[in-house]
């Protein structure tokens, strides 16, 4: 059984159809890229999965449970974490407070231990632990947001445009870290098709609300249509 199974998802905003019936699935342990131009409906798809906007129709199954009907706050305790577009940090709280908020839905005793793990993953965050998250550089903010999501011990991780607004060297650093998260199931929503496809095992290409291409990432990178539209 797939970890996440989306079938025939439709989403509209005020009568405008943003997502027009897509099918998408993630097997456990897979990194899957969802690429497409600005306005293709990628973020809307993600918002619908997370319950931030309501799908008009379609099914969203996580481990067989219909999560399309859940409120957005019901996802964290089920093991789904989101790194939102624009990082969504709690700007005035310190880096450490942000990371601790990531474990809000947990009640076990290993939170402090996991915090140390995040600091090993991102030593920069440890240096800045007492600093307000809003004053970090873009790359550090992305690290903090990723670290915060990992603090919930997710089984499924959504990354919304992690490369946005970052210097190329920072993008590389972030993606190296993402790749090092072995065994994590990740849905990577990206405009930067090249890096997203080189990072993932499979990819979906979205265009005006529909999935137009899907397949192994390597094959998509070679696909002339993808090359012409997204890789220049």
């Amino acid at each position: 059984m797939n970890l996440l199974e989306i079938s025939d998802l439709h989403v509209s905003y005020d009568g405008i159809k943003a997502v027009k019936g897509i099918d998408l699935s993630l097997a456990s342990g897979e990194i899957v890229a969802l690429i497409g131009a600005n306005g293709a409906g990628k973020t809307t798809t993600l918002k619908a999965i997370c319950g931030i906007v309501r799908a008009r129709s379609g099914k969203i199954l996580f481990e067989g449970e219909d999560i399309g009907v859940l409120p957005p706050h019901g996802l964290a305790s089920r093991g789904i974490a989101l790194v939102p577009e624009g990082r969504g940090l709690f700007g005035r709280s310190s880096v450490e407070e942000n990371l601790e908020m990531g474990a809000y839905s947990r009640s076990d005793t290993e939170i402090a231990h996991d915090l140390e793990k995040i600091y090993t993953l991102f030593p920069r965050l440890k240096e800045r632990r007492k600093q307000a998250a809003g004053t970090l550089s873009g790359g550090e903010q992305q690290m903090a947001s990723l670290g915060r999501a990992l603090m919930s011990r997710p089984r499924l991780l959504f990354l919304d445009e992690p490369s946005m607004g970052l210097a190329p060297i920072m993008v590389q650093k972030i993606f190296e870290t993402i790749r090092s998260l072995e065994g994590m199931t990740i849905l990577l929503v990206e405009q930067n098709a090249k890096i997203a496809l080189s990072m993932s095992q499979r990819g979906y290409v979205m265009e005006s609300g529909k999935i137009t291409l899907a397949g192994a990432s390597g094959a998509l990178l070679e696909n002339p249509l993808v090359r012409a539209a997204y890789l220049g």
């Binding site: 997370c50 409120p71 964290a76 974490a81 939102p84 709690f90 908020m101 809000y104 999501a149």
Partner: peptide, 24 residues
């Protein structure tokens, strides 16, 4: 308290707060 931390999270970023599992 736990509630106080949730308030701060909502104040700073409501969508992220929901993603943390807070019933906003």
């Amino acid at each position: 308290s736990r509630i106080g931390r949730a308030w701060v999270a909502i104040r700073e970023d409501e969508i992220a707060a929901e993603a943390m599992g807070i019933n906003t």
